[in-house]
Amino acid sequence: MQVLIVDDSRAMRRILRNIVEPLGFRIAEAGHGVEGLQQLIEHPDTTLVLVDWNMPEMNGIDFVKHVRSDPKHEQLKLVMVTTETEPAKMARAMMAGVDEFVMKPFTSDILLEKLQLIGVPLPSVA
């Protein structure tokens, strides 16, 4: 399974990679929304995107709107991983087409539980 991680923090991208890579997923990375859209073109088999909210060039919400405006990404799972926790903002993200929301700080368990919630097939963890 191909996964895209979009975050302007290299440290955060590494944290996310370290959680999902051991599950056997292939990972692509992008530092902001525009790069993220390019990565989706390069990896058309991407099935899951973990995307930050606040980023330069194009923020997470605009990225999500772009992705959702393209019918070929209808099945793509979008998880927003962010420090934004205002209910109104979270509602905005959900309206824009985010499948799940992970509030920072988080643990690997939190992320995996969220992926399980939206039906991302995970290898069974003992």
Binding site: M90, M94, F101, M103, I110
Partner: peptide, 20 residues
């Protein structure tokens, strides 16, 4: 707390049934 609502709770339910 935030870590607790992050664990296993679908975000739509958080929005619908919880107040911050």
């Amino acid at each position: 707390n935030q870590l607790e609502v992050n664990r296993g709770l679908p975000t739509p339910m958080l929005m619908k049934y919880f107040q911050r």
